[in-house]
Design a protein around this nucleic acid. Structure first.
Lengths: 241, 241
DNA sequence: TTGGTCATAAAAATCGATTATTTGAACTAG
DNA sequence: CTAGTTCAAATAATCGATTTTTATGACCAA
């Protein structure tokens, strides 16, 4: 006994970081909200130090805004920013996909097929939403994985998290969703066929349609008066533990 | 008395973050080095909490590596990574420059001219190296500022910091340096002339030459045996306070 | 009312001490 | 020797309490 993998050092800090990151991406906090640190402390049952360390990391990552002497806030949702994020996704994921298709080897092809298959299965069981999100993220990650640039992958991941803050708040659109699901399969086909041009075009379209869905997160904003800049808020559900 | 601007809330945490960030970019720590937290505490005269918060932020930013349960390390310098960073700089700064030229207004032109002029003056006084670095960074920032994408600017800034870790370790090359300095002026001309194509080409060349200078940070790595993967180290000077 | 001041409550930031984990040296059995 | 074990010292992570700063709102003068 001693050969077994150790239970991977999960510190309180890293745990609360992961948890908060997910909860932020999943819209479990109201956009624009000021985080009450002591409330978080209670809610998640962690100490102040690990919590503050996690908040600092999240701010550096862009999922929180840190203001000296006055704590942390959840960034507001703004149409401008969503435009920017989607635009950058098109540019960077397009670039990455192109490179991945050029450099990806046989092993990649296998993993890509596997990831697509797993995702497809999840497409059909609407009950396991969390699982679908995981597999979806993983599919897109696999798709661009062999692009050869660690920094490019890092930026793309960051943009995905930002994008998902909007998308997961938007109402579902089964019509579009079906198209998007189908595109995953088509992306695989084009990738395996090493059709760089075609794949890029499809990826552009894929991001564009996702963007249009994500725009739904602004469904509220009706009244042309009273532009109170309130940041489209989700329900202020208690984050689960 | 109360009208005066308040002294801007600089917390211990934000101060040590800025300081460490600079010191890391300027190579005041040995690449690959493990940071002794209590030593940093003494050295910079800050408490543990603000220090750890800063380290967490720096890790999220990519200037440190955080390993659960075993603290923080300065990332090694690797040729592969420098290649990646330079490559991404070409892609992203090229993209940003193109957009900036398309969208930049008259005010931008003025600021750009001013930034270039200030930089040029600093070019000629080799004694004020720190000042030159500041102005150089500022020039490049101004150049791409009106690209319209906050995220793109953010990524570019991050890449600059990464790139500079290498460049500032490399020995100076007065020949190349003269060319690079001249290119700053040429970039302004092309930008003002709204010559998108020409500007991109020049920017590519500019980054390429800078990259070749930065490669000098690997000047040591001679012996083809003993590839000890030691991470090219700078002197382990005490960081100044 | 409209500002402005002040005291107080609330919250953020920081400190000092404690707890948990890793590192490395000394040791031991094969 | 070499691999494995044990234990003490070093270091990382966390906690609880304190200090500092901001937010609130009662009060007062113009």
């Amino acid at each position: 006994m001693g050969i077994f993998e150790r239970k991977e050092g999960v510190t309180a800090s890293s745990w609360i970081y992961d948890t908060l990151r997910q909860d932020l991406v999943n819209g479990r906090f109201t956009a624009g909200e000021k985080l009450a640190i002591s409330a978080l402390k209670e809610r998640y049952g962690v100490g102040l130090s690990p919590l503050r360390e996690a908040l600092n990391r999240l701010a550096a990552y862009g999922l929180l805004i840190q203001e000296n002497q006055r704590g942390f806030r959840v960034p507001r949702l703004a149409r401008d920013e969503l435009d920017d994020i989607a635009d950058m996704r098109r540019e960077l994921e397009g670039m990455a996909l192109e490179r991945a298709i050029r450099h990806g080897d046989a092993e990649w092809e296998s993993e890509l097929l596997a990831a697509a298959h797993r995702l497809k299965r999840a497409d059909e069981s609407p009950e396991m939403e969390e699982e679908w999100e995981r597999l979806h993220m993983r599919f897109h990650r696999t798709l661009v994985a062999p692009c050869g640039s660690a920094w490019l992958l890092r930026f793309i991941e960051q943009l995905h998290d930002q994008f998902d803050r909007y998308r997961r708040l938007a109402p579902g659109e089964p019509e579009v969703r079906r198209v998007l699901d189908a595109q995953h399969g088509e992306l695989v086909e084009l990738a395996l066929a090493r059709d760089v041009k075609g794949a890029r075009t499809l990826m552009d379209d894929h991001v564009q349609r996702s963007y249009e869905v994500a725009l739904g997160s602004f469904a509220h904003e009706r009244d042309p008066t009273d532009r109170q800049q309130a940041g489209v808020g989700s329900a202020d559900l208690l984050p689960r533990r």
